[in-house]
Nucleic acid binder design. Structure first.
Lengths: 203, 203
DNA sequence: CTCCACGCTAAGCGCTCGCTTACAATCCAG
DNA sequence: CTGGATTGTAAGCGAGCGCTTAGCGTGGAG
């Protein structure tokens, strides 16, 4: 199965997926505004006008990429949070999955994390909602862990931000030539995060 | 003293500083490629052509901002590293200063951290060198602290990346409306970083 | 066999971009 | 008083941008 089909199994036809993949690569490497619709179409092996058969605008293509990426990240965090018993175990699972995703899908993640400012207002509001959902899960879990004595932090909001920063910033620096696999990086970061939160890391 | 004169005391005349400040604001909020030279000039209260009296190109303006910002950040880290005795104390000082700078100068920091991809090749190489200097200081200090038993981490390179990520990502989310002052945020993050590195935080 | 919906292209429109040119105002050295 | 350096403006050039239009090929329903 192609990477495009793996990332967006519900997008049809396959040409639309190829355009999305070409968009991801260009947006991640050069940025949204430095990418032309001709770049994207050429990269997808089509004429410039083909983009407009499947997407009403360049911004709509960005939105399709960004929304789907945010939904994936949110689903990942939700599942990790629900899969564990104690707050430390849940937090470790979240960080492992969140970090591994940002490494494994670092091109998509780069668009998700750093190109959302280019979205039109309405579309931005949609992804901003998904981002708040992710942040709330982490913050609530952290607060619950502090309440139960599993975590010890000065300020819950600040510590939650710090945990998310560790994951988000991976999208900025991770590349295909990075030494560690996404999974190994996730495990390493899970350990770092738990220690940062004052948790017993044997949990 | 104006903010522009505070940030770039050695830039003359004052009009050039106003252009740099207008560039910082535009680049930070909309990104380099979404900013026009007309935006910058208008924001600085001048005609579009005035930019080219002081800078040979839009990219040269970005470079002036980016290089000076990187130099400031490097100087900050160097001084913090030299100011403390033990590795934990030095690391705490570095994180406090690095984080506080990214918060207090979050517009400049945003351009520094997220717009360097827009630099021409030669100019990029210059700031890339400054970035490597910063990374090396943190990595070497961390390695020394592991050697001396002050720090306990799985992989030195990964942990160094994580420490820097905490600071860099501040530029992405910090705003003038953030609850915590830059200094307070720095202290909070200093504590989080030391715990993450397995250090005795009473140091 | 017909015909139309779908997927795609060739050509190009109108606009804005980074930047240049020609020129004006100010100021200070000789 | 003169002349050049400095600092600015008004006007606009050529290029590349996002996107539109008109039309072509193809495959499946009737």
């Amino acid at each position: 199965m192609s990477l495009a089909a793996e990332l967006w199994p519900d997008v049809q036809p396959e040409t639309a997926r190829r355009l999305m993949l070409a968009g991801v690569e260009s947006f991640a490497q050069r940025g949204y505004h430095a990418t032309t619709t001709r770049d994207i179409a050429t990269n997808a092996g089509m004429s410039p006008a083909a983009l407009y058969v499947h997407f009403p605008s360049k911004a709509a293509l960005l939105f399709a990429i960004s929304r789907s990426g945010h939904q994936q990240a949110l689903a990942l965090v939700e599942q990790a949070a629900a899969s564990a018993e104690s707050p430390p175990a849940a937090m470790r699972a979240i960080v492992e999955q969140f970090v591994a995703w940002h490494a494994r899908r670092h091109l998509v993640a780069r668009v998700v994390q750093y190109e959302l400012g280019a979205l039109p207002e309405e579309e931005y509001a949609v992804v901003a909602g998904l981002r708040r959902d992710i942040e709330r899960i982490v913050r609530d879990l952290l607060a619950a862990g502090v309440e139960s004595g599993h975590f010890h932090v000065g300020d819950v909001g600040t510590a939650a931000r710090a945990v998310l920063s560790l994951g988000i910033d991976v999208a900025r620096w991770y590349s295909d030539r990075s030494r560690q696999s996404p999974a190994a990086l996730g495990r390493e970061y899970g350990e770092l995060a738990l220690r940062m939160l004052g948790a017993d890391t044997t949990a």
